[in-house]
Design a protein around this nucleic acid. Structure first.
Length: 424
RNA sequence: GGAGGAGUGGCAGAGUGGUUGAAUGCGCCGGUCUCGAAAACCGGUAUGGGUUCACGCCCAUCGGGGGUUCGAAUCCCCCCUCCUCCGCCA
């Protein structure tokens, strides 16, 4: 949710910012609805005030044993009027609210302008691709030859976009997750959380999956939702709270499955485990004071990069342009890992600063000690990393053409009982 | 799933239809006293919204939603959460 008061104060700057995402000016409609809404609200409140006043007089009159029927008649007519205006006010309010909840966040000044991903800007590149040629088999071929990746079995039990992993490959997946969690908790100051994977509609609204992205989500028959990312739960941990400013930042990490319908991605990445309906991800979430989120964003991105560095996987970091930046984000860094079989860098992490847009929806605030004023916190989320895609990257980058095996990255050996290599 | 009990301000805890946004205690903030501190005493201490240049005024909120009533924390209905017992179960 955007700050309606801020829009009132400077509607043009909001329209200018939305234009960077290719949106038409929104403020005229917003301001019109806002004005109608507030006028109705004021009228309702004046009537309520009058009603309360007369009711009080009725109480006094009755306690004195006087006749109050004239007063009671007056209240009756006020009540009808209140109901009428109230309905009007609620109508304007809900239309306005729906409009606002479907508008994306303000972009930061240093988010570059551009229509789509082709305009994203590379900010760093770390490591050199070991094999830039196309002779590396892809992870599907590697995994199936090892007999440890089985898409057919997955299709039999669940359908397309699922996978069954076996033996050393699923152990490697687990090792990756463990390594990421240990690094975030041990070195990066994050607190590990094991959260619910089914959440309420309010929670999905809080982090902006709803109402606009309903079609991407799995809804249960009892009105709950399967989390598309742990961001949803971790961020909502502070919903409806007033936090002590001194306790910020809060940093949470969790290793969870993620469930996505991938409704708009039909035909994209159909081969392999790049795009699944279900995948594991280690997520980082930070809750910060409003003036600290920009620094935290850099820090969080560095934490995600650190995982790739330790895994010794070649990657680059790009800052997304205005047209590619997600709905809730004001600025996003994507980390892209080298995928040898595709001879390209593919997204493995996305770190976003959402400013206060989620906090407003969640009513998550903070307050300095001794102060009366509350402020909305800022929320950030980043993958640290997508475990499924990390597995793909390790399988391909650590592939040994000599025997079709996969070397175990140095940092993962402790999680694999010292195992050096995965072979058939 | 069944039966019963409970949800009030930061916390504890009154309040069962009438100037109750809510007694009292604790905590917290400010002040008096003191060389200083403690104690004591005095004052203040919810959130959101509308309106106003401002002081302020007003509205809503006692788990959530709806209803009865001139008037609801208090009565009725639905839902949620927690506790106790029974059943089931990873």
């Amino acid at each position: 949710m955007l700050d309606l008061r801020a829009i009132r104060k400077d509607p043009e700057s909001f329209d200018r910012n939305w234009a960077r995402r290719g949106l038409e000016p929104q403020s005229p409609r917003i301001l019109e609805l806002d004005e109608l809404h507030r006028a109705a609200l004021t009228e309702v409140q004046e009537l309520q005030s009058r009603r309360n006043d007369v009711s009080r007089q009725i109480g006094i009159a009755k306690s004195k044993g006087e006749d109050a029927s004239a007063l009671m008649n007056e209240v009756a007519s006020i009540k009808d009027k209140i109901a009428e205006i109230e309905e009007k006010a609620e109508g304007y309010g809900s239309v306005l609210n729906d409009l606002l909840s479907r508008l994306p966040n303000m972009l930061q000044g240093d988010t570059p302008d551009g229509p789509d991903e082709s305009a994203n800007v590379e900010v760093r590149r770390v490591g050199e691709p070991k094999r830039a040629n196309g002779d590396t088999p892809d992870h599907v071929e590697i995994g199936e030859k090892l007999g440890m990746v089985d898409f057919e079995a997955a299709a039999r039990v669940a359908g397309a976009r699922f996978v069954v992993l076996n033996r050393d490959i699923c152990r490697l997946e687990r090792a990756l997750a463990q390594f990421m969690l240990d690094t975030h908790t041990g070195e990066h100051g994050y607190t590990e959380v094991s959260p619910p994977l089914l959440v309420s509609t309010d929670v999905m609204y809080g982090t902006t999956q709803l109402p606009k992205f309903r079609d991407d989500q799995f809804e249960t028959t009892d009105g709950r939702w399967l989390v598309p990312t742990a961001e949803v739960v971790l961020t909502n941990l502070v919903r409806e709270q007033i936090l002590d400013l001194e306790d910020l930042p809060l940093r949470y990490t969790a290793w969870t499955p993620c469930f996505r319908k991938e409704a708009g991605s039909a035909g994209k990445d159909t081969r392999g485990m790049i795009r699944m309906h279900q995948f594991y991800k280690v997520e980082m979430v930070s809750i910060t004071a409003p003036d600290k989120s920009r620094d935290e964003h850099e820090r969080m991105t560095a934490c995600a990069e650190n995982i790739l560095k330790k895994l010794d996987l070649p990657f680059r970091t790009v800052v997304l342009c205005s047209g590619d930046t997600g709905f809730a984000a004001s600025k996003t860094y994507d980390l892209e890992v080298w995928i040898p079989s595709q001879k390209t860098y593919r997204e493995i992490s996305s770190c976003s600063n959402c400013l206060d847009i989620q906090a407003r929806r969640m009513k998550a605030r903070c307050r300095a000690k001794g102060e009366k004023e509350t402020q909305f916190v800022h929320t950030l989320n980043g993958s640290g990393l997508a475990v499924g895609r990390a597995l793909v990257a390790v399988m391909e980058n650590y592939y040994d053409p000599a025997d079709g095996g996969v070397f175990v990255p140095e940092v993962l050996k402790p999680y694999m009982a010292g195992q050096e290599k995965i072979t058939a």
